[in-house]
Design a protein around this nucleic acid. Structure first.
Lengths: 212, 212
DNA sequence: GCACCGGTCTTTGTATACACTTGATCACAG
DNA sequence: CTGTGATCAAGTGTATACAAAGACCGGTGC
């Protein structure tokens, strides 16, 4: 694996996990020493992060981790609704129905995953990730898939803002099951509507648990 | 201006203007000598182009200019319809109506711009660019604006595929005028519908004049 | 004649040195 | 005491040297 890839993965992980919170200044020499790579591959990693919007170049002061305000979250969800609604519509038309039938079955059993035995909800988030991946594969449009992928980078970071309580997660799981069910039936209109409802609920929950 | 910015601008221009057609291999030493910069800033430029999707890194063989097939164009227009329909909807709600009234007036006079005196259609494309910029400013969503911006890079390249005839350009100008008019009236549904029609016509024209 | 293997050579990936821009701090003048 | 200017330091931007990895080509064996 290339050093620039390692640096990129490490920095991106640190940013989305909030180990490098918004506003952190990423000095080149400092980070290159911390990650054990030279400045050249580190700069390449920083350029990729900046292109994705996770960092921004401040002239003369290096790059800083971009801020995430509630206004940004609202904008992010506006784009998310646009892209994901179209994605589920296309998936409803083009997707392999059996795949989504299976995902619907698994999502219906999601309450069993949300026990206290797994406080990090790893199994639940893995299942949701599989739904996202199935939609990506079903839409058959690399440009749309790419747009969704770059969007999700920011969403992972936002997730940390949401103090997920079990009640909301159960609700979200039901909403995901509804979406999978609609896609499995090939009902694009319902899939899109269910996605709109799901995202509105998610944003509402996010805004209600964050005062700023 | 930084050398990496110059290299990026030069390469991107060469690619979208088809001076570097799809499939061109961009060797680092060759391009750095051609553009008069060192390999380090050139690599930065190539990384940015690759992040945008204009080039792709072929392991061991350097980066090549990405191909644009008709399937890619179809996918591109699918994403374009998704983003631009939402953009004009938001612009209808949030935009400054006077701005779009003025653009509508200018677009209504577009036939006057499409005379034989200006075979490159520079004045016409400048006007359409102003409409795009006005929509970008009106949507008030930096993430959506960014997605549109990265999309338009590819669209400029595709434009070269379209052997624009005066008849189609006149039709397109009328469609743009309709969109601007709908936004000026704050009618989101009509603006979205007009955009859908316009993009379908554009894609249809593109596909009919390109057999491959 | 075809496929496989090894060597060479081109090309990318990384490190480091150097120059230049920029931001800060301190001193001096008003 | 405040504002402005100069000097200094820190950090980015660029160039180049070196290392490593993959591709191309010739040769040989089957």
């Amino acid at each position: 694996m290339r050093a620039s890839d390692r640096a990129y993965a490490a920095l991106r992980g640190d940013i989305v996990e909030w180990r490098l919170p918004p506003g952190s200044v990423l000095a080149e020499v400092e980070q290159s020493e911390r990650l054990g790579v030279s400045r050249t591959p580190l700069r390449e990693a920083l350029a990729r992060l900046t292109a994705e919007g996770l960092t921004a170049a401040q002239r003369g002061r290096g790059v800083v981790v971009t801020d995430i305000s509630m206004d940004h979250v609202r904008e992010l969800f506006e784009l998310r609704a646009t892209l994901e609604c179209r994605a589920v519509e296309l998936a409803s038309v083009r997707g392999d129905r059996e795949v989504f039938r299976q995902l619907h079955r698994e999502l219906s059993g999601a309450p069993g995953l949300l026990t206290n035995a797994d406080p990090s909800r790893a199994a639940y988030y893995e299942l949701v990730g599989r739904l996202d991946a199935a939609i990506d594969a079903a839409i058959g449009n690399s440009y749309l898939a790419q747009a969704l992928k770059s969007l999700r980078v920011h969403l992972v970071r936002v997730r940390r803002l949401s103090q997920d309580n079990p009640g909301r997660l159960l609700e979200a799981a039901r909403e995901h099951a509804t979406i999978a069910h609609a896609i499995a039936r090939g009902n694009a209109a319902v899939a899109s509507a269910a996605t709109t409802v799901h995202l509105d609920n998610s944003l509402d929950h996010l805004l209600s648990t964050n005062t700023n």
